[in-house]
Design a binder for these strands. Structure first.
Lengths: 186, 186
DNA sequence: TACAAGATGTACCTATCGGTACAAATCGTC
DNA sequence: GACGATTTGTACCGATAGGTACATCTTGTA
């Protein structure tokens, strides 16, 4: 009884790129087929639920990645200020310094929000929570930490919007750097 | 030779709502027809260029509105600090306190960015410029004013993403209020 | 080498897409 | 009321959408 999970998960990065680039509605099965190199037969074998299951798999993968690489390190960093510094590094790398869009942010603004509302809401809530926790451990009061965390996550999402709008990744780096300074000053 | 422009412009608010809600690709002609109360005949009579011309008309309308209600007042306010305060009020009202999404931000993240790249880029560039000008007049140095303006426009866009993701408009108000305080402190 | 299970390509389905053609209704002007 | 121009509804177009059915190929195991 061979486990075939490996194959399915191999398709997810390509799926993520297609959804990121074209959105949920814009990602047609022919685009998906071209990007993954998989025909409809394979696609529907791996994802019997169709496009919706494909997108859900991508969201789950992103959620897992951020939990592993961002949220948990933030919460468990020995030195919270250093943990925050590393969050900015990891996030900058993840978004290719602003060249890459946040799929979950795009879904939040777009047509597909309702379909994946729970995922989308949970992702941002967790990010804010984890960052607030680190800030609190770094010395901020509970309320101040939450406020700073909310502002920072919003700044990052807004920076992605601006970077993509201007087709200029420099703006992303500038906003990220200033936000990091703001959080870690004092 | 009767001027029929009046009719065409009457359809634009409804068009804007459809594109805002469903995105460019998601806004099908049947949705557009239902929202505007216009059949295909009328739609293609007013907008011979089809969906693309409809979306362009909406973008132009938004651009004009912001120029008139936000950018110009920012640049020409007698008292720049008061002008900035009013910008936050007007923007809060425009986005229905976070219940309404920024169409141009959604286009920037979505599939339709390339199609309307010039509009999208110009909108944000103008916003940052106008706000930076006001901040400079309020006493900031040139570089600092630009940085603050960039951060603020990004914060607003990010706040819209978070508000829509969490389906919670309170977060929009919180971020806006803190950003206003940050700009006008000292 | 035989066999079952999984993987894949292809043909096909219905619904809808954006867009066009055009005749009929409507409207402003004289 | 007549006329020309605009406005509108309807039928229709080819293309493509997402999805299903199924026969055929691979593949791992014994």
């Amino acid at each position: 009884m061979p486990r075939t999970i490996g194959e399915r998960s191999d398709a997810i990065p390509a799926l993520a790129e297609v959804f990121r680039t074209h959105g949920f509605d814009g990602a047609s099965l022919s685009l998906i087929g071209a990007a993954t190199g998989l025909g409809k037969g394979s696609l529907y074998n791996f994802f019997p639920g169709g496009k919706e299951e494909m997108a859900q798999a991508v969201l789950d993968e992103i959620d897992g990645w951020f939990r592993r690489e961002v949220f948990t390190p933030l919460r468990e960093a020995k030195e919270p200020r250093q943990g925050i510094r590393e969050m900015f590094q990891v996030v900058d790398r993840y978004f290719h310094s602003g060249r890459r869009v946040c799929l979950i942010g795009a879904f939040a603004l777009g047509d597909s929000r309702d379909r994946f509302a729970a995922c989308v809401a949970a992702y941002f809530a967790e990010w804010v929570d984890a960052l607030a926790e680190a800030l609190r451990r770094a010395g901020s009061g509970r309320a101040e930490a939450r406020a700073q965390a909310e502002d920072t996550v919003a700044a990052i999402q807004g920076a992605l919007v601006l970077a993509r709008a201007a087709d200029d990744r420099a703006v992303f780096g500038r906003i990220m750097r200033r936000q990091e300074l703001l959080l870690l000053r004092k």
